[in-house]
Amino acid sequence: MNLAEGVQIVSFGILAVMLIGTALGVVLFENIVHSAFLLGGVFVSIAGLYLLLNGDFVAAAQLLVYVGAVNVLILFAIMLVNKRQAFAPFPTAWVRKALTGVVSLGLFALLSTMVLATPWSLSTDIPPSNTIVLIGQHFFTDFLLPFELASILLLIAMVGAIILARREYLPEQTISSEQQQVLTLPERPRELVSIGESSRNIQ
Results as ranks from 00 to 15, higher is better:
Leu154Ala: 02
Leu111Gln: 05
Ser45Gly: 14
Pro171Asn: 10
Ile46Asn: 00
Met18Thr: 08
Val70Trp: 06
Pro127Gln: 01
Ser176Glu: 15
Pro127Leu: 04
Ile126Asp: 10
Thr113Trp: 12
Phe76His: 00
Tyr169Glu: 10
Phe147Gln: 04
Gly40Val: 07
Ile46Leu: 12
Ser45Asn: 08
Ile162Cys: 04
Ile163Glu: 06
Thr174Gly: 12
Met79Tyr: 11
Arg84Pro: 03
Ser123Gly: 03
Val103Ile: 08
Trp94Tyr: 03
Gln203Thr: 06
Val103Asn: 03
Leu110Asn: 12
Val67Pro: 04
Leu52Arg: 03
Leu145Asn: 06
Val102Tyr: 03
Thr22Ala: 15
Val17Asn: 07
Phe90Ala: 06
Gln181Pro: 02
Val42Leu: 00
Glu168Tyr: 07
Gln203Gly: 05
Leu164Phe: 01
Leu73Thr: 07
Pro127Gly: 08
Ala150Arg: 10
Ile162Met: 11
Ile126Trp: 04
Thr92Pro: 04
Val95Glu: 09
Trp94Leu: 08
Tyr66Ser: 06
Asp56Arg: 02
Ile175Ser: 03
Ile32Ala: 01
Val193Asp: 14
Ala61Asp: 05
Val115Ile: 15
Ala98Arg: 06
Val7Trp: 00
Ala36Gly: 13
Trp120Ala: 02
Val133Ser: 14
Ile126Tyr: 03
Glu148Tyr: 13
Gln181Tyr: 00
Val67His: 02
Ser112Thr: 14
Ile152Tyr: 10
Pro189Ile: 05
Leu155Ala: 13
Thr92Ala: 09
Leu144Ile: 09
Val115Ser: 09
Gln179Asp: 11
Ser123Lys: 10
Pro127Ser: 10
Leu122Ala: 14
Asp56Pro: 01
Gly48Tyr: 10
Ala36Lys: 07
Leu64Ser: 11
Phe140Trp: 15
His138Trp: 15
Pro89Glu: 04
Asp56Gly: 08
Leu24His: 05
Gln8Ser: 05
Gln85Ser: 12
Ala150Asn: 09
Val26Leu: 07
Thr141Leu: 06
Leu110Lys: 06
Leu144Asp: 08
Leu63Gly: 02
Ile32Asn: 02
Phe29Pro: 03
Ala4Gly: 12
Met79Gly: 00
Arg166Ala: 14
Val193Phe: 15
Glu148Met: 09
Phe90Gly: 02
Gly13Asn: 05
Val81Ser: 07
Ala157Asn: 11
Ser177His: 03
Ala165Cys: 09
Phe43Trp: 15
Ile78Gln: 01
Glu197Ser: 12
Leu153Ser: 12
Asn82Gly: 00
Ser104Phe: 01
Ile78Cys: 00
Ser11Asn: 07
Leu111Pro: 08
Gln173Val: 10
Pro146His: 01
Leu145Cys: 01
Asp125Lys: 11
Gln85Thr: 08
Arg167Asn: 13
Ser104Ile: 12
Leu183Trp: 11
Leu183Lys: 11
Leu116Thr: 13
Ile202Trp: 14
Ile126Glu: 14
Ile195Glu: 14
Ala98Val: 06
